[in-house]
């Protein structure tokens, strides 16, 4: 197994001292270069977990290690945030500058990258997310999906090893969601950037290597998307819903149609129906 880039070890977290635990005894490992998803309904603690990994919150109990560094040690904070960047939910509330190019520069300025190096890094980051042609626009003139891609570029320019996406598609329309997810998948495949994708959209979790289901602050299921979604009934209590094809397959199986297990996408379903009907 590849070395874990993010290791969460028996972590609990409460917002207030003696308050209720938002995250309870969570353990989780994300290997270098992989694409993990954390699924859960609103209030399941998934966003809190994301902020624990980035060192925005510090665990009440347990340890979070990012690239071998403990988030609790003060001297690690900035290095952790550089190497494990984070993209948030609301596209409007994370862009700082009045021009796209300068917003991408923001992180670079913060970590003291020399001025001469900046333009090349900015250009590369914007190209990677397909936003270079908007480099000189004001952020408020962009669509939600475009703003999110600018936010990704801002993180990307800092050359991180991992990026944590905290429900970054929740406020986007379907096209924006598709564009952002595609850009992220490409970064994962082509540049080997480790991705931790936090969402409540099942369709998005389908493309991941590993899925962790969170419910009431705990991780209740771990597995590949196929393992998780093949059991439509098992995820229901967690207020989640299987992807449409998994649901349809389950219903057809109940009617006696001998479909194989683990169907998630339209193509897989079509292939399987063809096999059975020929």
């Amino acid at each position: 197994m590849a070395e874990p880039i993010i290791a969460v070890d028996h972590v609990s977290f409460a917002y207030e001292e003696d308050g209720p635990l938002a995250v309870r005894d969570v353990s989780l490992q994300v290997e270098k270069g992989s694409f993990h998803a954390i699924l859960g309904q609103n209030g399941s603690g998934k966003s809190t977990l994301a902020k624990l990994i980035n060192g925005l919150y510090l665990p009440t109990e347990g340890t979070v290690t990012v690239c071998g560094m403990d988030t609790k040690a003060d001297e690690n904070t900035w290095e952790i945030r550089r190497r494990a960047g984070m993209v948030f939910q609301n596209p409007d509330n994370q862009l700082v500058a009045t021009v796209v190019r300068e917003d991408v520069a923001f992180g670079l300025e913060n970590i003291g990258i020399p001025t001469e190096e900046m333009p090349a890094r900015i250009e590369k980051a914007l190209t990677d997310v397909g936003m270079l042609k908007h480099a000189d626009k004001a952020p408020h003139l962009l669509s939600g999906g475009q703003k999110q891609r600018v936010a990704i570029a801002g993180v990307l320019a800092m050359e991180p090893e991992a990026i944590i996406f905290d429900e970054s598609t929740a406020m986007l329309d379907p096209k924006g969601r598709r564009d952002v997810l595609k850009a992220v998948q490409r970064l994962n495949k082509e540049q080997g950037i480790t991705v931790l994708w936090i969402t409540h959209f099942m369709e998005e979790a389908v493309v991941c290597d590993q899925v962790h289901v969170m419910h009431r602050g705990q991780i209740v299921m771990n597995g590949t998307p196929r393992e998780i979604f093949s059991d439509v009934e098992r995820i229901k209590p967690y207020r989640l819903d299987a992807p449409p094809m998994a649901r349809l397959a389950a219903q057809l199986r109940a009617q006696g149609m001998p479909l194989k297990e683990g169907i998630l996408t339209v193509d897989e379903m079509a292939e399987e129906v063809k096999r059975l009907c020929k």
Binding site: R81, M86, N90, D92, N93, V96, R101, N110, G112, G154
Partner: peptide, 27 residues
């Protein structure tokens, strides 16, 4: 206020820690 909270968190996550040691894109 909600935006301000979000933004502060996003800025921190992007390693913002005041003007010290900061370089600039536009010189």
């Amino acid at each position: 206020f909600r935006r301000a909270g979000d933004l502060a968190m996003a800025m921190e996550a992007r390693c913002y820690h005041g003007g010290e040691g900061r370089t600039r894109l536009r010189v």
